[in-house]
Each structure stands twice: as C-alpha cells, then as structure tokens.
C-alpha cells in the first residue's frame, strides 16, 4: 500500500516538474514550485509513518514555511514592487 502511495506522489512531482518546465508565463512556474513544496511535506509525512521518528516533521514544517515565504517574495516581485515597499 505504501508503495502505491509513493508512486502517486512521484507522479505528482513529475506533473509539477512538467508545469515548471513548460509554463507559458512566470506565474505558472511559481504555481508548480508552490505545489511541489507541499508534495515534499507529504513525503516527509510518509517517512515519519514508516520510521516512527519524529524529527522528520521538523523538516516538513521548515519546508512549508520557506516555501510560503518564497512564494510571497516572487508574487511581490511579479506585482511590480520592490522587496522593501
């Protein structure tokens, strides 16, 4: 069962990579990167489920946080403002 789940998540990652490489506008690429960040959280969760070791959840939290900040920064850049205003 866990193997099926891994295969699903791998397909998800490759679909996101397709969108990142193909996307016509910069916004499309950023959507792909944002979704890929949340897929990584899924991977960390499954590894926590398999190994019963709790510090993989720390990695998941940090990854979600940094992905959120990166998306905000790129969207502010697309909006046409500087980072400081």
């Amino acid at each position: 069962m866990i193997t099926i789940l891994f295969i699903f998540l791998l397909i998800c990652s490759f679909l996101c990579l397709y969108r990142i490489s193909k996307g016509p506008s910069p916004g499309d690429r950023v959507v792909g990167i944002d979704i890929l960040g949340i897929i990584v959280v899924n991977f960390c969760t499954i590894i926590t489920y398999l190994t019963k070791v709790d510090f993989y959840m720390n990695i998941a939290l940090s990854w979600a946080l940094l992905s959120f900040i990166g998306t905000l920064a790129v969207s502010k850049f697309l909006e046409g403002k500087g980072f400081d205003e």
């Binding site: 940090s62 940094l66 900040i69 905000l72 920064a73 502010k76 980072f83 400081d84 205003e85």
Partner: peptide, 16 residues
C-alpha cells in the same frame, strides 16, 4: 535562517 525568515516575512508583508 528561520530567525531571518521571520523578519524577511514581516518586511515583505508590511514594508520596511
């Protein structure tokens, strides 16, 4: 890095 990320988030959202 996470301390810096907190202040970077505040700078992005509220201005400098």
């Amino acid at each position: 890095v996470i301390f810096a990320a907190t202040f970077i988030l505040i700078t992005l959202a509220f201005g400098k």
